[in-house]
């Protein structure tokens, strides 16, 4: 039982993972190790890492229940925040490399390419979640905090749509992400009453 009681401190491991992941990415970019088209690579890598952290944050509650370790719940916030951080980078890479900070091109992209608008919408929904991730916000919002933060399921679904919409010659990548997302979210519904209480 001692281990399970100390699990809460494990959230620092998430911060270390996020930080190392970012350092690796930044170092590879600065040292020109991402090939001749680093912008595309960075867009892919930041998007991947962001979505991975998001899926991980979604997996924590069912995992905590499965191993009866409620303190694991403390891992959700850092995982969610790192997801938001990498998806912000994803957006910055897009702005810098794909549209050159042009509003006109942004509007054109959003209108002409629905997979981009879906991704943008998902990012927008993450903003209020990141802003209300503090203890203070959680206390102030009370019951509404839980309701608001269920938006993360919508974000995950939009993320899957964002990937599936881009499938071209091979569906394995988008297919695996979607499958994992469905499995994680689906695992909650084996015991819906526990899920409601935990929130």
């Amino acid at each position: 039982m001692g281990l399970k009681r100390r699990l809460g401190a494990g959230r620092w491991a998430i911060h270390v993972a996020g930080l190392l992941s970012f350092i690796w990415l930044a170092a590879a970019a600065i040292q020109n190790q991402l090939g001749p088209d680093p912008i595309k690579q960075l867009a892919l890598l930041t998007g991947d890492r962001g979505f991975q952290f998001l899926l991980f944050s979604l997996a924590i509650s069912p995992l905590a229940r499965m191993v009866s370790a409620p303190l694991l719940i403390q891992w959700r916030r850092p995982a969610g925040l790192w997801a938001f951080y990498f998806l912000c980078l994803h957006l910055l890479v897009f702005a810098q490399g794909y549209i050159g900070w042009s509003w006109a091109l942004l509007v054109e992209e959003l209108i002409e390419r629905p997979y981009i608008s879906v991704g943008a919408l998902a990012w927008l929904m993450l903003v209020p979640l990141a802003l209300t991730s503090t203890r203070l916000a959680r206390r102030k919002l009370g019951r509404r905090w839980g309701v608001l933060h269920r938006l993360v399921f919508v974000v995950a679904a939009l993320g899957c749509v964002h990937l599936l919409w881009q499938v071209r010659a091979d569906w394995i990548n988008a297919g695996l992400y979607t499958l994992i997302c469905v499995l994680i979210v689906g695992s909650r519904y084996r015991n819906a009453s526990w899920f409601l209480k935990a929130n």
């Binding site: 020109n32 001749p36 088209d37 680093p38 912008i39 890479v93 810098q96 002409e112 071209r168």
Partner: peptide, 23 residues
């Protein structure tokens, strides 16, 4: 002519880099 995946207005002339995308 629009393409549903990539804007065809610009291109990245390779090699490109993050800070000078060569767009």
């Amino acid at each position: 002519v629009d393409h549903p995946r990539w804007s065809q207005r610009y291109e990245r002339r390779l090699p490109s880099s993050l800070f000078s995308p060569n767009r």
